[in-house]
Design a binder for these strands. Structure first.
Lengths: 155, 155
DNA sequence: GGGATATTGTTAGGGTCCTAACATTCTATT
DNA sequence: AATAGAATGTTAGGACCCTAACAATATCCC
């Protein structure tokens, strides 16, 4: 069976609404799905998922930050962050201890293992990321960056 | 409690690595998360999720396409599509019937209810989408579209 | 001191996404 | 015809991500 061709004309990845002329929201979704898939495969060797990598990066950059801080930084809800943190803690990549004064806050910090893992992941991801801009002129890259930052804010 | 300020200097959404100067992959993730959240809120009234809207749109555009076709179109796995289709079917928005000749293929098509729902969703989403490009010059929008299509393909 | 208010984190449940393993059906080759 | 190969769809298990409701802690204001 070499492709039953159920429907007559289903477009490939660059054609129809799936190419540059398609809806911006759809293009954004597609690009994000593809990037996430590439990240997943690149990080699979280290048993780290893309969201875990993002969390490790932020905790590495701001040691001692709280779970709520991490949620705000990641644009995620506290409930979602709790799951990610639980998995990283179970893997021994980070520690969560109560704030000495403010009894409810959890202060997150990387363990030595978490730091080593983060360093390995960073090398891998950054080399992948370099290919994300290689076909862009400086002016184009500037436009893309401006738009992405804009889209993250409001619209 | 007005913000305990666990860590000294955690950047806001436009600052540090979270602004235009940050990593492209991180910016893409942020933009996509924010867009998805806006979509979810816009579609919540119709009890449709963004992935469901994407599936409805594609089935509406290519009636009779198979579950595998839908997976390829969406850059998703067959298993993921099965879940989305099951939810839409349970809601009465689509039908899945066996191909008359090719006994294993499922042919997907919208019901009247699904079509009406899709029309309502489209109006809502497209008006939201218009705001996604309103601050972009034509040249910038062209650059963004080219990059998104490129990122969806390979890198 | 004693609330109203706000923030933090937790729990429960649903939808999305993956990999891995599998059964089913059809095509191609021998 | 018989077998190998390829495509379709299914199931099980795990990680992400959300909303909603809740418990615990800290601040503000009287």
């Amino acid at each position: 069976m070499r492709k039953p061709a159920t429907s007559p004309s289903i477009p490939g990845l660059g054609e129809g609404q799936r190419g540059e002329a398609g809806h911006l929201g759809y293009l954004l979704r597609q690009a994000s799905l593809a990037w996430r898939a590439r990240m997943e495969h690149a990080l699979a060797e280290f048993a780290v998922t893309p969201p875990q990598f993002a969390a490790l990066t932020m905790i590495g950059a701001y040691p001692g930050l709280s779970s709520a801080d991490l949620a705000r930084l990641s644009l995620l809800t506290p409930a979602t962050v709790a799951g990610i943190v639980a998995n990283l803690k179970r893997a021994g990549a980070l520690t969560a201890r109560r704030h000495p004064v403010h009894g409810r806050i959890l202060q997150l910090a990387l363990t030595a293992k978490g730091n080593a893992q983060l360093a390995r992941c960073k090398r891998r991801v950054y080399s992948l990321e370099a290919r994300l801009a290689e076909d862009l002129s400086p002016a184009e890259e500037k436009a893309v960056r401006r738009w992405l930052a804009l889209a993250a804010r409001a619209g």
